[in-house]
């Protein structure tokens, strides 16, 4: 077993240690996600269709978003904490280990609460997604793209702390991408819409993968895969460049 596998097993054991709390948090998150489904059902029941979006499309978007987002925030929970860890000088222990630092940090912590998102997303897809082998494959591929883009984006904005110190930008970026990702993207036009495909790539963590499940388009799929590669690369490069500037007060508590 290599170091990363052992670290991941340790993180799993830590999350599983309090089993009652583990299941409680998952249940709470599932109820939380269910409320969003209720909101969208009520909205489209009253409104009908908004720029091509209806109940089925928005629920597919929610299924992808919760599945991909749950993987990132649940399994790679530290993706959201990179900025804080860097600003507080809490990477010392990770630097001393014979494993890639970024990979170690990402698999070091599991957040049970967000695993509820993934469970919910999969169940929602099974319930409303008319699963067939091809649709299941697209759902899994789309969720993987969503998770990769979100992880890359969170690492990228978190790494800004290496350069400018503690800042609230990463928290704002996190909330922005999740919020923009959860709404029908076609509501936006012009520069706002362009931003959601580039600076804050919210389109790629939900709307685009959801569209691929409903109507596969090779060009769109290639674009989404390219976005995943680009943001993953940007995240890794920004983190490694930032690590060269990293300083701390010798803190050992990762």
């Amino acid at each position: 077993m290599n170091g990363l596998q052992a670290t991941f097993r340790g993180a799993c054991a830590q999350a599983w240690a309090n089993r009652r709390g583990f299941w409680f948090e998952i249940t709470v998150m599932i109820l939380n996600d269910l409320v969003w489904v209720v909101f969208w059902v009520l909205f489209f029941h009253r409104v009908g269709t908004v720029r091509g979006w209806n109940t089925n499309r928005i629920l597919m978007l929610q299924a992808i978003l919760t599945t991909g987002g749950g993987i990132v925030l649940g399994v790679f929970a530290n993706a959201r904490n990179i900025g804080r860890l860097a600003a507080d000088g809490e990477l010392d222990a990770a630097l001393a280990l014979p494993v890639p630092t970024l990979a170690y940090i990402l698999v070091r912590k599991i957040q049970a609460l967000n695993l509820g998102d993934t469970i919910f997303g999969v169940v929602l897809f099974v319930a409303i997604g008319h699963p067939s082998p091809s649709r299941v494959a697209m759902f899994l591929g789309g969720s993987a793209i969503a998770a990769t883009v979100l992880t890359g984006f969170l690492v990228l904005i978190g790494s800004s702390s290496f350069f400018v110190g503690r800042n609230e930008g990463s928290e704002l970026g996190f909330h922005a991408i999740v919020m923009f990702g959860s709404y029908p993207i076609d509501v936006f036009t012009g520069a706002g819409r362009a931003m959601l495909y580039s600076v804050v790539p919210a389109a790629f963590i939900a709307a685009v993968p959801a569209r691929l499940v409903d109507s596969f388009d090779p060009g769109l799929a290639a674009g989404a895969a390219a976005a995943a590669v680009v943001f993953a690369t940007l995240g890794v490069v920004a983190f490694n460049l930032g690590l060269r500037r990293y300083t701390s007060g010798n803190v050992w508590k990762l």
């Binding site: 409680f24 709470v28 109820l31 939380n32 409320v35 609460l113």
Partner: peptide, 8 residues
Amino acid sequence: STWFLYQK
């Protein structure tokens, strides 16, 4: 975690 429910 109960804040999630209150919030909703």
